[in-house]
């Protein structure tokens, strides 16, 4: 009886796992299922996407309605730390039906690839997205070797 129940639930998890694997294959290597040890559960504020090219790693933080001056971005070796505050004032006189938007302090720590150059970082804020570009070290970039 128990074995039947457990095998049924196992197969359900198997299916979910396979689905996750398929999603992972579609969307690339790092994903929530094999996420970094510092990654936060999905739905945490701000959401993060990371993209890379041979020259650069780009971190996108989906942080709408911020004053960029309140953002603190620091990088130590390959660890990027972003802290900030988004205070949404509550209007005392109004009746609230929904308050789904994040309000308060946040902190995200993101492990970047090892070959980044922490001295060459730039950040900008546009349409509520913080884009942090970190250059990779020259030596780590792929080079074309010519045959003479």
């Amino acid at each position: 009886m128990f074995s039947i129940a457990s095998s049924a639930s196992d197969s359900l998890f198997d299916e979910l796992w396979q689905l996750q694997q398929q999603v992972d294959e579609l969307f690339g290597s790092w994903t929530s299922s094999s996420g970094g040890i510092r990654s936060l559960p999905r739905g945490s504020f701000p959401a993060v996407n990371i993209g890379h090219t041979p020259e650069r790693v780009d971190v996108y933080l989906f942080a709408p309605g911020l004053d960029p001056k309140t953002l603190d971005i620091s990088i130590q070796q390959n660890l990027l730390t972003v802290t900030g505050t988004r205070e949404i004032p509550t209007e005392e006189q109004a009746t609230y039906y929904r308050q789904e938007r994040f309000s308060g302090e946040f902190r995200r720590v993101i492990a970047l690839p090892e070959d980044i150059d922490p001295d060459r970082v730039h950040a900008k804020y546009r349409d509520g997205v913080v884009q942090i570009g970190v250059e990779r070290r020259e030596a780590a970039r792929p080079r074309q070797i010519e045959i003479h």
Binding site: G28, R42, A47, G51, T53, R56, V129, Q131
Partner: peptide, 18 residues
């Protein structure tokens, strides 16, 4: 529709937002 400033050859490494 959101649009990110992506480089031509940029590949995803990690994505909360899909």
């Amino acid at each position: 529709t959101a649009r990110l400033e992506l480089a031509e050859n940029e590949e995803a490494l990690y994505a909360d937002v899909r």
